[in-house]
Amino acid sequence: MSDLQFRSALSHRRDEDLPMDLCVSLDEVSDRAMIDLRGSLDDPKFVAAATAALGVALPAQPRSSSVKGDITVLWMSVDQWLVTTPRGSEQALLSKLVKRLGNTFSFACDVSDARTIIRVSGGDARSVLMKGTSVDLQSPVVKPGWVRRLLFAEVAAACQFVHSDPDTFDVYVFRSYADYVWEWLLAVARKGARVQLYGKQEPPLV
């Protein structure tokens, strides 16, 4: 039996030198596995089983996420969550979920390879991302843990504000789009193209 060869969506670009003059740092996060979880918050059996299996409450608030230990749960819809867990732990977690969920009306599905995560961080992360999405990332509602599905660079994506200082966003894109989105980010993230929206600025000439 040969050794399993794992290749994330952007692994072939890992050795590429990034341009020196980027105003944010860009990375692929490839060590997270993902489980798509469906169920109704109105069904206490489902909620209890999911919470027990995951060890963390399902975020009920739209556009939020919850974290405990290695597990992060991202709100995707009123009846859908994306659970992320370190790669290698997903089958055990999935079995645990399936077992706990039993015959409740629910669905847990391994989608670990369907998406990849592009991490954009730095003081200019918001404005770089706003070149590709109409979602207002400068809104006060964008706090650590905030999640939103969106159209990014004309591609369906999800975005999580991981933490600030420096501002760090995870952009979840479907695997087949990864190269396109990566190229797109390289194009808009050059220092010379920085946009500072609001805040103190040099007074324009009069």
Binding site: P62, R63, S77, V78, S134, V135, R148, L150, L151
Partner: peptide, 11 residues
């Protein structure tokens, strides 16, 4: 009205 998301027509 379901999730409260506000957005452009293209969303």
């Amino acid at each position: 009205p379901v999730c409260g998301a506000e957005g452009d027509e293209t969303d």
